[in-house]
Computed example of a mutant assay.
Amino acid sequence: MSLKIRLARGGSKKRPYYHIVVADARSPRDGRFLEKLGSWNPMLGKDDEKRVELNAERVQHWIANGAQPTDRVLRFLDQAGLAKRAARSNPEKAKPGKKALERAAEKKQKAEDAAAAAAE
């Protein structure tokens, strides 16, 4: 049986709330699970300590028994110091597109023209 530590959605429409659960990989997202390990409330601020709550002892137990965390849960575990997440790097994603570069060049040109006109 392939086990995953993943999110199960709760909450109402447009007010998400997630439980961090251990479930069989074949079961539906909000379906049957083996154990609830914590919760994540994305509606709270990023600096709020109640945003992500984990039962560290049980998480370690399930990882030792072969449960694989999903990427989002692995981020939480890395933040809590329970697991290590390899840093991913996509330097192309951070670069602005053609239109943004054109707008920036145009804005810079206008600023230079305005500075030259003010100097005269």
Rank of each mutant, 00 (worst) to 15 (best):
I63P: 02
D30P: 03
Y17Q: 09
K36L: 12
A67S: 08
A56Q: 07
Q60T: 06
F33W: 05
E35S: 10
D30W: 03
N55A: 09
G45K: 12
E35Y: 02
R29Y: 04
Y18T: 01
F76R: 06
I20N: 02
L54S: 04
F76L: 11
L44I: 03
R29F: 05
N55E: 14
R32C: 09
K36N: 13
H19M: 11
F76V: 08
F33P: 00
F76M: 14
K46L: 13
P28V: 14
V73R: 01
R58I: 02
H19Q: 13
G45I: 04
Q60W: 02
G66S: 11
L37M: 09
G45S: 13
M43A: 13
D48H: 11
Y17H: 14
E53N: 14
E49A: 15
I20W: 04
P42G: 09
W62P: 10
R58L: 04
G31A: 05
R75G: 12
G45L: 10
S27A: 12
A56V: 03
V52R: 01
L44E: 11
S27C: 09
P28D: 10
F33S: 02
Q60M: 10
M43L: 15
R75L: 13
L37K: 00
A64L: 00
G45V: 02
D24S: 08
G66N: 08
G31K: 02
I63S: 00
K46S: 12
E49K: 13
N65C: 14
P42H: 06
G31D: 02
D47W: 10
R32W: 06
G45H: 12
V52C: 04
E53G: 09
L34T: 09
A23N: 09
K50D: 15
L44W: 08
Y18G: 03
A64M: 03
R32G: 06
I63Q: 06
H61V: 05
L54E: 06
A56C: 10
G45Y: 07
S27G: 07
L54H: 05
N41T: 09
D47G: 15
D30H: 05
Y17N: 08
D71C: 07
L37D: 00
R29W: 05
Q60L: 14
R72A: 15
V21D: 08
W40V: 04
A67W: 02
G31W: 13
K36S: 14
S27M: 08
N65G: 12
K46Q: 12
V52Q: 02
K50P: 05
H61D: 05
E53M: 15
I63M: 07
S39N: 06
E57I: 01
K46V: 12
K46C: 10
D48F: 07
R58F: 05
V52H: 02
S39Y: 12
E49R: 13
V22Y: 01
N55P: 05
I20P: 01
M43Q: 13
G38R: 01
L37S: 02
A64S: 13
D24Q: 07
D47F: 12
P42K: 09
Q68C: 11
K46A: 11
R58W: 03
A23Q: 08
G38F: 01
K36D: 10
E49W: 11
E57K: 06
P42W: 00
V73E: 03
W40N: 05
G66C: 13
R29G: 08
V21I: 14
L34Q: 15
